[in-house]
Nucleic acid binder design. Structure first.
Length: 790
DNA sequence: CTAGATTTTATTTTT
DNA sequence: TAAAATCTAG
């Protein structure tokens, strides 16, 4: 099946050498070069994972103690997979249990979270050290909530200072290891001075809440290892071999972190092996610095370089179009991609009518592939898209057709309102300084602590510099109505009941995590709240069952949880109640889940995911939808050349996931946030070599089937229609629909002249019943957005 | 203070 | 379209 250009290594009796079986020369080289810094440039599909896992197994079989080996990835899924595959490779080994004990395979973020838990006490009391060992991790939503309060306190409007934008600027600074003071020192214009001010206040609020964001995990660990000799010495004495996967996605902070973990003493160069592919760098927007990989050899003197160029994954035509596409990137060092898998079907590109047509077509295509090829099943098929919003139509259609599918959205469960509420209660129990969580749930469900009361509490907390929860305890001294004071007191008593007044011991305190969770759900009133509503709406019934699911998830976590007996990773928790320590571990895990983590290759279903989540995976049959200007490349990325090139790499990543069959689609019209728009096929489709792609235009087929309010395909956009679309959009955002009332004459792009018979709804997505005399007196319910008033 | 209705606004990718 | 913000009636 796979014909290897290089002759495979001969099998020997040495178990270590069995690990080299079936590897090409450069692959084998990468496995056995265990000492010193090494850069492995691994092209898409070149057996990168294979090399890393064999390398780890090889090290262990040579007698390197597992606890000296550290492998870092970006997702939990990648880490789990790596651990599993190393285990499989060692299956034959006589002492496989003992030689792999203590091996650390982790994500950057989880490793940092652990190191901070462990060593934070050593840093407490140092100037500006922000956190204690019982800190909370804030996710994007928490960050935004805190940023909103921060901006509010600074009297800055969220219109001029959008929280996302401000947080983005701060995140960039943190990725460069610039703290608020350093940022302020460099700020030489109004805008950056303002950001510096916000950055300072935000960090202040984070300190107050004893919380860190994702970037802080890196920043604070770097500071810890730089300033605390004890921590650094322990860590460096321990991990002697470090491997980093997807190195092209590391940012500056992660670069510095990796040198701190293993040291970079010219006298004894570190055993640091990094694996990556500049052509698959797709996280530039998150601060990934491609210089890390390009300048690796300068950063580590004497570093080795191995290039893996042979592709074992895709057929020749697929590889040919990927190669052709990526050659359009100017900022790139050319790399030869080659395969020995000759033959294979041509990739296809199809122009569809609209997103529904596209969804149906893609599903039909995948169905046909599965029917045609015996060895193909649903689980071998995947659909990729640029943004999550594009999955909706696909999901609808898949459900309608009864095709099994899974969607890679590991975070979805924890993003639900009711689940976030429950987690917020737990976070508050774990860290009472956590103001974001407190504010989230203090009046949820409603317990008569209203806006005015909360404002007084928050203000008092600000003025006195006391955590808000402490203010709740002295509510009787504040100028509030007796009712409000009672309500607040009852709330504090409830929370104190869960924590046993901070002791986590005694009567009424939960005995297990699951027990605590179910108490919290009951006594907070959250459960009752949804129980009451469950009979009325399906949504509430769902929410109720989600709450139950948290209890099960906690129980499951508890069952599989083993406290690390690892000196560098286990927090010093002799005097910490077990319940508290397991809850912290649970909250940490929950905070660090990623979408890609939920992908289960064993499920018998089509996988749907974003192009970003697809990196590192492969599927026999792949469809990429929404290959349109403004989508892929995304309109945001079009602002810069480097942005465009990153989009091209994203397309490259998508294409190179495909092993045998590939379909790319674009739609002529697409409804985005309720507005139907004319789309232009992606420039990336034009950049593909025509001799290797089968292109077809199906956008004008079977028009009578789809009787919706779409513009007719033969209506090419004219200046006038573009202008009227612009006006419609403008009037839509201002919320007014001039002249739309019963009797008004209107024109619809597909159905022509008509009269409004009845107004169904007003506002932004207003609809009306319109009668069309010309089209056989048809009466249709249409969106105002598509009507032109005459 | 609460709950629901109404209006406004924002849209990429994620640890 | 969907989420967030704002308004309104009880």
């Amino acid at each position: 099946m796979i014909v290897n250009a290089n002759e495979p290594t001969a099998r020997t009796d040495n178990p270590a050498h069995a690990l080299l079986d079936g590897l090409t020369d450069p692959q084998r080289e990468a496995v056995v070069t265990t000492e010193g810094p090494l850069l492995v440039l691994a092209a898409a599909g070149s057996g990168k994972t294979r090399v890393i896992t064999r390398r780890i197994a090889y090290l262990l079989s040579l007698g390197v103690p597992a606890w000296q080996v550290l492998a870092l990835t970006f997702t939990n899924k990648a880490a789990g997979e790596m651990r599993e595959r190393v285990g499989e490779l060692l299956e034959a080994h006589p002492q496989r249990e003992s030689i792999s004990r203590g091996l650390t395979v982790s994500t950057f973020h989880a490793l940092c979270a652990r190191l901070l838990r462990r060593y934070a006490p050593l840093m407490e009391g140092r100037a500006n050290w922000r956190i204690k060992h019982d800190y909370t991790i804030y996710d994007t939503n928490d960050q935004q909530a805190l940023m909103k309060t921060t901006l509010n306190a600074l009297q800055l409007s969220t219109t001029n200072w959008p929280p996302r934008t401000v947080l983005g600027a701060i995140s960039n600074a943190k990725n460069e290891l610039k703290d608020a003071a350093a940022f302020a020192a460099e700020a030489d214009d109004f805008y950056s001075r303002q950001i510096a001010k916000i950055y300072t206040s935000y960090d202040d609020a984070m300190r107050q809440a004893n919380a860190v964001d994702f970037d802080d995990l890196m920043v604070l660990t770097v500071r810890l290892l730089r300033e605390c000799d004890e921590a650094r010495d322990e860590v460096q004495a321990r991990w002697r071999y470090l491997m980093i996967d997807e190195y092209q996605d590391t940012n500056h902070a992660q670069f510095v972190l990796s040198t701190l973990l293993v040291g970079n003493d010219p006298g004894s160069p570190p055993n640091l092996c990094v694996v990556g592919d500049p052509d698959q760098s797709i996280y530039g927007w998150r601060g990934a610095d491609i210089a890390n990989i390009l300048e690796f050899e300068q950063a580590y003197s004497g570093a080795g370089l191995i290039t893996l160029g042979q592709n074992f994954r895709s057929t020749a035509p697929i590889l040919a179009i990927a190669d052709h596409l990526i050659r359009n990137n100017q900022q790139r060092k050319h790399k030869d991609l080659f395969t020995t898998r000759d033959g294979g079907e041509q990739p296809e590109a199809v122009l569809c009518r609209d997103e529904r047509h596209e969804a149906g077509l893609v599903i039909d295509w995948l169905k046909a592939r599965v029917e045609e090829e015996e060895s193909l099943t649903w689980k071998d098929a995947a659909i990729f898209y640029r943004n999550n919003a594009l999955s909706r139509v696909l999901e609808d259609e898949l459900r309608r057709e009864g095709v099994p599918y899974v969607i890679a959205r590991g975070t979805a469960f924890y993003q639900r309102e009711e689940v976030r509420d429950a987690i917020a209660y737990l976070k508050l129990v774990a860290n009472q300084a956590d103001e974001v969580s407190l504010l989230r749930i203090i009046n949820k469900p409603a317990r008569k602590i209203g806006k005015a009361t909360i404002e007084t509490l928050a203000e008092t907390s600000k003025i006195r510099g006391v955590p808000m929860f402490e203010v709740l305890r002295i509510v009787d001294t504040l100028d509030l109505t007796p009712q409000a004071q009672r309500a607040v007191q009852r709330f504090t008593e409830t929370v104190d009941g869960w924590t046993g007044h901070g002791t986590f011991f005694g009567e009424g305190v939960a005995g297990s995590l699951a027990d605590l969770v179910s108490r919290v759900l009951k006594q907070s009133g959250l459960e009752d709240h949804y129980k009451k509503l469950a009979a009325k709406s399906e949504e509430s019934a769902d929410k109720l069952s989600n709450l139950q699911e948290i209890v099960s998830s906690a129980a499951e976590f508890e069952e599989t949880y083993e406290p690390a007996d690892d000196p560098a990773l286990a927090p010093d928790e002799d005097d910490v109640p077990p319940l508290l320590s397991i809850m912290r571990a649970y909250l940490e895990t929950v905070s660090l889940v990623a979408d890609a983590d939920s992908i289960d290759p064993a499920s018998g279903a089509i996988t749907l995911m974003t192009l970003h989540a697809a990196k590192g995976l492969e599927f026999p049959a792949v469809a990429i939808v929404g290959m349109e200007e403004g989508l892929l490349p995304s309109s945001r990325a079009l602002e810069s050349e480097s942005g465009l090139e990153e989009e091209r790499r994203l397309a490259f990543v998508g294409i190179t996931r495909a092993m045998r069959r590939l379909l790319m689609t674009s739609a002529k019209y697409r409804t985005q946030r309720g507005l139907r728009e004319r789309m232009i096929p992606s420039r990336f489709l034009d950049e593909l070599p025509s001799e290797h792609v089968r292109v077809s235009d199906q956008s004008e087929e079977s028009w009578d089937e789809g009787w919706d309010d779409a513009p007719a395909p033969w209506d090419e956009p004219t200046e006038a229609s573009i202008e009227s679309a612009r006006r419609r959009r403008a009037s839509r955002s201002s919320g007014s629909w001039p002249g739309i009332e019963p009797g008004a004459r209107v024109r619809h792009p597909r159905f022509g002249l008509g009269t409004i018979a009845q107004v169904m709804s007003k506002g932004m997505n207003a609809r009306a019943v319109v009668e069309f005399k010309d089209a056989g007196r048809k009466t249709l319910v249409l969106q105002y957005a598509n009507l032109e008033v005459l």
